[in-house]
Amino acid sequence: MEFEDIYKTYWDRIFRLCMGFVNDYDVAQDLAQETFIIVWQKLETFRNESTIGTWIFRIASNNCLRQIEKEKRFQKSDLPIHLTEEKHYSIEPQIQLLYKCIAELPETDRVIISLELEDVKQAEIAKIVGLSEANVRVKIHRIKEKLTQKFKENGLQ
């Protein structure tokens, strides 16, 4: 697969993963671009041991985790549902709430739920994160419960 095809195919998915991690449009954009810089540099070393998707998601999620070092860069903004602030990108408060709630989860949970919402198979998620499949399943279940709870609290169900 050519780099440009990969870039176009995976851009949306990687961007959303980063957005779920930081809940900041510009930072997510930076993180996603950085991910593809790494993909571009490492593409020759990709040896089909896993699917290209798993490989790219690993790079993206590791890059997100690495951003913890620069954490001060993205202090998450407080709930912007009614204060629309600079968030004119997404119109619907529900979408904003979802991304905000996800960005407030523990770091690895953010990665897990983002991958789940991207329709990545649980077996693949296990391979990306480094947990057992059973463990991933339990975690996804708990995270979804937590999200549902938060949506209820905000009256957005």
């Binding site: 961007f15 119109i91 979802l98 279940h141 979804k144 419960e145």
Partner: peptide, 19 residues
């Protein structure tokens, strides 16, 4: 357990700039 909230749908409706 989604309790009728379609998280996947919401998730994918996030607006995204072109690559």
């Amino acid at each position: 357990y989604n309790n009728h909230i379609d998280f996947k749908d919401l998730w994918k409706r996030q607006s995204i700039k072109e690559p």
